[in-house]
């Protein structure tokens, strides 16, 4: 295995079996690699197999078949766990504990001594903006504050690889921005982040590469440039007659009439030139507007394709 690969997944399958014997393939032959120092986006609709994949990489679930290697060790290996961390969606803690106590508990799981723990807990509480709330019981915390505790526990061991599962789910814009900034700062420190999120704008903004999973299968994988094509171009013509519109329509993905204006949505760049050539002298050109495809556009397109 290449040392620059933080995660290697090859032909991963995970099948769930109910007590009645029913089978459900949650992850089907998924393969990808995540390079060290990379922010890797892992997106998909609900029930696509994202959390199952993450749990398999953490050793919480066992693969039915295939290979999952994390930091050069089999998924779930204790040595690898010393260098990784996990922030689940809506992290849950023992509510009777204070923020400082729960972090102290997690520090103990890394066998840290009392002096080191006290120092680390103080540092982490300050880092996540809970310096003044560390002595309050968790039951008094808001969702955003609990998420900050979740982040703090994920940073205890100064991990090389972080798994974030929906880290911004249900957070207010300030907390959301803080987490986005944290991910960017982790990238600057050379950490590897495996980010699963429904906030596609976040993923588009912070990730180097993205994998899209749908119905348990990996349907797209690549950098933003590789995944997002140039997008459609909207050509708006005025005073176009019926004959001209019918002539242009086969070259377009979509057509809309708005009073005297005819809007043609053209996918390919060659077709844009062809449309303009056909329309020359026969109608007035109002505008030619290229639209860049967003990750959200691509995601919706893939999910809708999958439903057909």
């Amino acid at each position: 295995m290449n040392v620059a690969e933080a995660i290697v997944v090859e032909g991963l399958c995970k099948e769930y079996r109910s007590r009645l014997g029913d089978r459900m393939l949650a992850v089907n032959n998924v393969s990808f690699t995540v390079n060290e120092g990379e922010i890797f986006g892992f997106i998909g609709p609900n029930g696509a197999g994202k959390t199952t994949t993450i749990k398999t990489l953490l050793g919480l679930l066992f693969p039915t078949s295939g290979k999952a290697i994390v930091l050069g060790r089999p998924a779930g290996d204790i040595e690898a766990k010393e260098r990784i961390s996990y922030l689940p969606e809506s992290p849950y803690f023992y509510e009777h504990m204070t923020g400082a106590e729960v972090l102290d508990f997690y520090c103990q799981l890394f066998r840290m001594d009392k002096v080191a723990r006290r120092k680390k807990v103080g540092e982490l509480l300050e880092r996540v903006g809970l310096g003044k709330d560390g002595r309050r019981a968790l039951r008094q915390y808001s969702k955003g504050m609990l998420q900050r505790v979740g982040i703090a526990q994920a940073l205890i061991n100064d991990p090389d690889l972080l798994f974030f599962d929906e880290p911004t789910s249900g957070l207010d814009p300030i907390a959301h921005k803080d987490i986005q900034d944290l991910i960017l700062s982790l990238r600057d420190q050379g950490k590897t982040v495996f980010l699963s999120s429904h906030q596609l704008s976040d993923v588009e903004h912070v990730c180097n590469r993205v994998a899209i999973i749908n119905r348990g299968e990996l349907v797209r994988l690549g950098t933003m440039d590789e995944l997002l094509h140039a997008g459609r171009t909207i050509i708006t013509l005025a005073c176009a007659n019926e004959q001209l519109i019918e002539q242009i329509k086969p070259l377009t993905a979509h057509f809309a009439q708005d009073g005297d204006l005819a809007k043609f949505y053209v996918e390919a760049e060659d077709d844009v030139h062809k449309v303009l050539e056909i329309a020359r002298g026969k109608a007035s050109l109002v505008s030619v507007v290229p639209q860049k495809q967003t990750l959200e556009d691509l995601f919706v397109e893939i999910v809708r394709e999958g439903r057909k």
Partner: peptide, 14 residues
């Protein structure tokens, strides 16, 4: 039920 097990077993806990 409380999902506390996930963060614990994701740590180096046998």
């Amino acid at each position: 039920e409380r999902r506390t097990i996930y963060t614990i077993l994701a740590k180096p806990v046998k």
